[in-house]
Design a protein around this nucleic acid. Structure first.
Lengths: 243, 243
DNA sequence: CGTAGACTTGACGGCACTCAAACAAGGTGG
DNA sequence: CCACCTTGTTTGAGTGCCGTCAAGTCTACG
């Protein structure tokens, strides 16, 4: 179990200090572990969960379905991310969460989270911070969707995911990563059509920015990719300081 | 001063119960009040504020400037909204906040906010909830930018702002409101060009959905506007329940 | 009455969408 | 072990929403 919250602890320690007591409190707050198959939903819009889920392994997305059947993905979550920590206070889910790959999650009953807010103010602030990071990423996506071209937007997403993976120790020195996300899902994330995602990927390959075969993505030229994306990791707030 | 946090209290009471002690604690946490002229910045990207600001009067936006000089607005804030509550934990601003109109804000020194998290767990959860609502709105904007047409997106924004104004007692029975936002700013919000915003507004007028002259906006046909936008206020979480 | 800011209009172009079909690859069952 | 199917990727043709550029109009205000 301790290793299941390891990614979260890494994520926290990148921003602040986690005391042994806090780590123990987190562990104590954890409930049963659950696994989900790729393509299944962890929670659905309209649900009122009584626990929040922390990704220990696998990739998940938050998404909304629209009346005409189209889908928009509003967030991608990696190990160390809570997918619905907000449901602790928001109560009713206003979107669904799906598994991009097979996943293992640790559940945190809301009663336990509530107890943390009653007894561990600093740990509570760190959990609050986790939702604030989600918010900062949302804003960055809004900027990308509103003002960046398809190429720039895709480049930005890749830079972001690679950086976030590195934070939890899943980044590769060769900048090669396993992304269990297909072109349709990529389109639903970027607000683009599958066809246009395909053409944009081909352009990135033609310019030797990346290779992408199956689920294996390799970033060939980080400098240029980050330049195209105007990627600035400030919004991920990677500095450890007392919160 | 009490009336300056009135909109916030209304916003909170729409979602939960605010005890007299909590209200007093909020008041006690408030620092000096500041006014800003239209067009000025309340905080800038890169700043490390030592206080958060609550809008008492006026309209503000959060925005980012890009390398090519374009701008993307990521949030619009009304009276009762904190514009940078997240700076309490995030520390470094990753975007700027500007005044759309003349504004009056109440400042909350971070040390006081920290004290609230140490002594008033329930009030802390409500403040956390305020940032979670921002997050939910961000997600809704992502959905709109990714999957809605200019007309639908604009309709959605109007429905959202009208609903949010109503929550803090600023909604008009005739669905008429004062929006101090011009077409350029609207474009920066929706990720559209000024020209296209203009044409979309004309379409809405031609279809008798709204009138918009100067800063006076009137929604003529709420049902149809909400229908076009697929507006569903669930994401604003307007139900009072214990959090 | 002149000027600045906001709004409006027209012409034109391009990025990205839709529709449709072909191609590739992995898994499955007979 | 190989048809067959499913899922994902790729390509082409045609279209359209929205952007850019440029100019003109309106309004408020000093």
């Amino acid at each position: 179990m301790i290793e299941d919250i390891d990614a979260l602890v890494r994520k926290l320690e990148r921003r602040d200090t986690v005391s042994p007591e806090e780590r123990a409190a987190l562990l104590a707050a954890a409930g049963p572990m659950i696994t989900f198959a790729a393509g299944t939903d962890l929670v659905r819009e309209g649900d009122r969960p009584d626990r929040s889920m922390l990704v220990a392994q696998g990739f998940t997305t938050r998404y909304r379905l629209l009346g005409d059947g189209t889908r928009q993905i509003t967030a991608i979550h990696l190990p160390g991310d809570f997918v619905d920590l907000h449901s602790f206070l928001i109560r009713t889910m206003d979107h669904s969460v799906g598994a991009l790959s097979a996943c293992r999650v640790v559940t945190f009953p809301h009663t336990n989270l509530r107890m943390i807010t009653e007894r561990y103010p600093h740990l509570s602030r760190m959990l609050w911070l986790m939702t604030l990071l989600d918010s900062a990423i949302h804003r960055e996506w809004i900027v990308a969707m509103g003002r960046r071209s398809a190429l720039e937007q895709l480049a930005h997403l890749l830079c972001e995911i690679f950086t976030r993976l590195s934070v939890v120790g899943l980044g590769d020195r060769d900048r090669e990563l396993i992304l269990p996300i297909n072109q349709t899902e990529l389109g639903d994330t970027l607000g683009l059509s599958t066809v246009h995602v395909n053409r944009t990927l081909q352009q990135m390959r033609a310019e030797h920015l990346i290779t992408w075969q199956g689920q294996t993505v390799r970033i060939l030229d980080w400098q240029r990719l980050a330049g195209i994306a105007e990627f600035d990791e400030t919004y991920l707030h990677l500095d450890a300081e007392a919160r």
